[in-house]
Amino acid sequence: MPKLIKNDAVSSDSWQRALPDSDQLAKGHFPTLAQWQAATETLPTVQLQPGDEVVTLVEALDTLELIAVDFPVFTDGRGFSYARELRQRGYRGELRATGEFMPDQVHYLRRCGFDAFQPADASRIEEYLRQLRVFSEHYQASVDEPLPLFRRRDSESQLA
């Protein structure tokens, strides 16, 4: 079973990356956006690829339970914005990064709203876990810290 990090711990489940070339839904694999759209019933999971439009999912954000965002190469950073968009539009379910992202990216991925990480190469899973929190402070607002540093500084100076 594929290994992943969820709730800051190594675990595993049966989901595998989508098979984009297939018309049919393959058992155990995430549906692609096209497969999800073509399905007759409402599927609770979908996997986005770079180039997919996040707005397609807006109407279904309450019913979706697991959205995977795939990184076919780690240099393609579109998925970071997809995560921010989904969280900003109110998605509360599991948001899982899949594919070729590297350990040194999970810290940013987490701040963008991902809460599960399923790297294609699971042999370094402990390294991914170690990289989750390499910084203890940040300037920007993010999903895990909704106030930017300047607002936290503001309230400190008002308390002082």
């Binding site: 990216q105 810290h107 940013y108 991925l109 920007q140 993010s142 300047f150």
Partner: peptide, 16 residues
Amino acid sequence: EIIRQWSTLHPEFAFL
């Protein structure tokens, strides 16, 4: 300086 702080280690825009 305000832009510097905002852009420094911005989680969303490191792989543009």
